[in-house]
């Protein structure tokens, strides 16, 4: 009897996963473009409410911040409740420069904001090379409170009211909000932010799988062993926080350019916690997780507010459900929705 071998090459587990990822990215991209351009092809009126697009833009801005904190709290592994410092710095630098000096270019203000944030991240790096764990949580929290009070008490920065009247950014001389071939004033932001999020995703992916990313992993897992492998632990901790701060700062600048205001709450601990929560819900050290986390945390309250209006609840159900959701996710998926399991 002859055995017949049928050799159908089975796809490897890794390959399948990679394929699935590519498909997921394509679907999300297509959906976004659909949302952007649909109204161009509908003959009368708007199908997609502007408010919905607003939520998408804010989600994308927070995705940038969430990808930013991922470098520090994800890959380097220290908890930060101070990333609002960098978000606020980006926002305020953009606000100040575009309104004061007869309007410095928005894009230039992003770069200057990044530089400021990089400098402001150095004290955190300095503290981080001396203490760790829960001490860093308190230190970063205190750090962002300092800046909130500075912003509140500074007249040049507009005090409690913050700075208003920030012009929307221009691209090739055209305001992003008024690009003629786009159906609404939000679509320009959606496209640009999608490009930025896409670039950051690629950036993160490639860095993490390189010599630099491996060194960060070593620092996170065991500092002493990292030293013994020839990793300059302090330098890599510094690198992680600076990268993280610079990316978060970009999110802040866009926030100012989009909402046209910057107020002291952008330096607040609440915002810090929100950014950190996005990352933890989505999954630390997961790129798609960081983005998903941002969308969940931004979209859920809006959705629940809508539900509240619909059934006429006297209170906002969000705050109860938000807390409950966090508890449930941490109970059943402590590594985050798209994170990888440890141990």
């Amino acid at each position: 009897m002859k055995k017949i071998h049928i050799s159908l090459r089975k796809p490897q587990a890794g390959e399948l996963k990679a394929n699935r990822k590519v498909i997921a990215v394509c679907v999300v991209l297509a959906a976004m473009l659909f949302i952007c351009f649909l109204d161009d092809f509908t003959p009368s009126g708007r199908v997609i409410p502007n408010y919905f697009k607003y939520v998408i833009v804010v989600s994308l801005i927070y995705s940038v911040a969430s990808l930013g904190i991922n470098f520090y709290s994800g890959y380097q592994g220290d908890t930060s409740l101070g990333h609002a410092v960098f978000f606020g710095t980006g926002a305020y630098v953009t606000a100040y420069l575009t309104t004061q000096f007869s309007g410095i270019n928005f894009w230039a203000s992003i770069l200057i904001g990044m530089a400021f944030s990089a400098v402001l991240s150095l004290p955190v790096a300095w503290a981080g090379s001396r203490v760790k764990g829960s001490f860093m949580v308190v230190i970063t929290y205190g750090y962002c409170e300092i800046f909130r009070y500075l912003a509140i008490n500074s007249n040049t920065l507009g005090g409690t009211a913050g700075m208003a009247g920030i012009p929307s950014p221009k691209i090739f001389g055209v305001r992003i909000t008024k690009i003629p071939w786009l159906p609404s004033n939000k679509d320009g932001f959606i496209l640009i932010l999608m490009a930025i999020v896409g670039f950051l995703a690629l950036f993160t992916y490639r860095i993490v799988n390189s010599r630099v990313g491996y060194a960060l992993a070593a620092v996170r897992e065991d500092e002493i062993a990292a030293y013994a492998m020839g990793v300059n632990v302090k330098a890599y901790k510094r690198l992680a926080i600076i990268t993280s701060a610079v990316i978060t700062s970009v999110a802040g600048s866009f926030y100012a350019g989009f909402t046209n205001v910057a107020d002291p709450s952008l330096f607040g601990a609440t915002l810090s916690i929100t950014i950190f929560t996005m990352l933890v819900i989505g999954g630390r050290r997961s790129i798609s997780g960081a983005i998903l986390g941002a969308f969940i945390v931004v979209i859920c309250p809006e959705l629940l507010r809508y539900v509240q209006d619909l059934i006429g609840l006297p209170f906002d159900p969000w705050y109860i459900l938000y807390g409950l959701m966090l508890v449930i996710i941490m109970r059943f998926k402590p590594e985050g929705l798209l994170g990888t399991k440890e141990s």
Partner: peptide, 28 residues
């Protein structure tokens, strides 16, 4: 003191750190 959550191959690759020099730019 191994890097616990990483694979065997990754643990060893980390040790190549001191003999390599590619930067973030190279990786990107």
């Amino acid at each position: 003191r191994l890097f616990g959550t990483l694979s065997v191959a990754q643990n060893i690759e980390i040790a190549r750190h001191c003999r390599t020099s590619s930067t973030m730019w190279d990786a990107l």
